[in-house]
Amino acid sequence: MKYLPRIALFLAIPALLLALPWWTLIGATSSGAVFWIGTAVFLLAYLALPASMFLGHGPAQSDAASIVGDTLLGVLWVLFSWSAIGTVLGFGLAAAGVDERARIVAVAVLAVTVALVAYGVFEARRVPRVRTLEVPIRGLGAGLDGLRLVVVTDTHFAALNRLRWSERVVEVVNSLQPDIACHAGDLADGSVAKRHAQVDPLGKVEAELGRFYITGNHEYFGDAPGWIEHMAGLGWQPLRNQHEVITRGGDRLVLAGIDDPTGAGLPGHGPDLRAALDGAAPDAPVVLLAHQPRQVADAAAAGVALQISGHTHGGQIWPFHYLVRLEQPVVAGLSWHGGTQLYTSRGTGFWGPQLRVFAPSEITVLVLRPE
Rank of each mutant, 00 (worst) to 15 (best):
F122M: 15
A299E: 09
G69T: 00
V107S: 06
Y220W: 11
A102G: 01
F122A: 15
T155G: 07
T71Q: 08
N161D: 15
T29G: 01
A256K: 05
R211Q: 08
V135F: 11
P261N: 07
L234A: 02
V170G: 04
V78W: 01
F358P: 00
M53H: 07
V135I: 15
F122W: 15
R126Y: 02
G32W: 10
V78F: 03
R138D: 15
R126M: 13
H196F: 11
G143T: 05
D200L: 14
V304Q: 01
A275V: 07
L289N: 03
R125P: 03
L289A: 02
P360H: 03
L44I: 14
S62D: 08
Q198T: 08
A60N: 12
H321R: 13
H311L: 01
L43F: 13
L140S: 02
Q198L: 03
S62V: 04
G97E: 10
G58S: 10
A115P: 05
T29I: 00
W336M: 13
V78T: 13
A45T: 08
D200C: 01
L79M: 10
L342F: 01
H156N: 03
G97H: 12
G92W: 09
W236S: 00
Q198K: 03
I308M: 12
S166D: 07
A181C: 11
H57G: 10
L163G: 04
V130N: 14
L11Y: 09
G56R: 02
P50C: 10
L255R: 03
R346N: 15
V169Y: 04
T348I: 09
L133N: 11
R125V: 12
W236G: 00
V88K: 09
Q295A: 15
G92F: 10
L140G: 05
L18D: 03
G74V: 04
V117M: 11
M53I: 14
G226H: 04
V114P: 02
R195F: 04
A28S: 15
A299V: 07
A65Y: 00
L163C: 04
T262H: 12
Y46S: 03
A224V: 06
S52Y: 04
Q237D: 09
L18A: 02
L306R: 07
R126D: 06
G74K: 04
D298Y: 10
I37P: 05
K194H: 10
F80R: 09
L18W: 02
Q61S: 12
Q341H: 11
G58M: 09
P5C: 07
A60K: 14
L255H: 06
Y46I: 08
V127E: 07
E167Q: 14
S175T: 09
A184E: 12
A48C: 08
G233T: 02
V75P: 02
F10D: 13
L73A: 15
G263D: 02
V150G: 10
E167I: 09
S31R: 13
E208C: 12
A94L: 13
S30W: 06
V107R: 09
I85D: 02
I137A: 05
F358L: 15
D186R: 10
A28E: 06
G143M: 06
